[in-house]
């Protein structure tokens, strides 16, 4: 996979205040890495670039190695840019039995985008994920922060377009 970079990144004033608060919130400074990476991701349009890691390292006064350890281990931090609408379709057992995998394929075809990549207009990313703990509404997906389901092949594309309008 090609390594994505960007020109530069800096946290907003509110972002810096957030980091400062998180640094003293837990018993150890290092615990602030996870929440601060979320903040960076939010301010950087949904992903964490190497430049953002360098910036965060300076702001937190924590080595980049510690931050990269966390960034690379956890799947909820995106290491490449994602679309405005990130549709994460659950393809684990209960969703798979109820058509989750076919839904993921159907969505990729309908939005003309490869799994895990970003659509040409920058609007949509579709990825397959493991169990999201919502098998009662299988097949389901996490769309940005929201859980949606049970999804139906006939209506899912319209539903996603509606959600895209709200972003």
């Amino acid at each position: 996979m090609k390594k994505e970079t960007q020109k530069s990144f800096e946290l907003s004033a509110e972002g810096l205040a957030f980091v400062k608060k998180e640094l003293t919130r837990y018993e150890t400074k290092r615990s602030a890495i996870l929440p601060c990476l979320y903040r960076v991701q939010k301010e950087n349009g949904g992903w964490v670039s190497p430049e953002a890691v360098s910036h965060l390292s300076k702001v937190m006064d924590i080595p980049t190695a510690y931050i990269n350890e966390v960034l690379s281990f956890y799947t909820m931090y995106n290491k490449c840019p994602v679309g405005k609408l990130h549709i994460q379709v659950c393809c684990n057992l209960s969703c798979a039995m109820n058509g989750g995998r076919e839904l993921a394929e159907h969505l990729c075809r309908s939005f003309n985008v490869k799994e895990g990549e970003i659509s040409a207009n920058g609007e949509v990313t579709i990825s397959r994920v493991e169990c999201l703990g919502a098998c009662d509404i299988a097949p389901m997906a996490q769309v940005n922060e929201e859980y949606v389901g049970p999804l139906k092949k006939e209506t899912v594309v319209e539903q996603m377009k509606e959600l895209l309008k709200k972003q």
Partner: peptide
């Protein structure tokens, strides 16, 4: 951290 596939009770 409810993550065992199929589990959604803690939620």
């Amino acid at each position: 951290d409810e993550g065992e596939p199929g589990t959604f009770k803690d939620r």
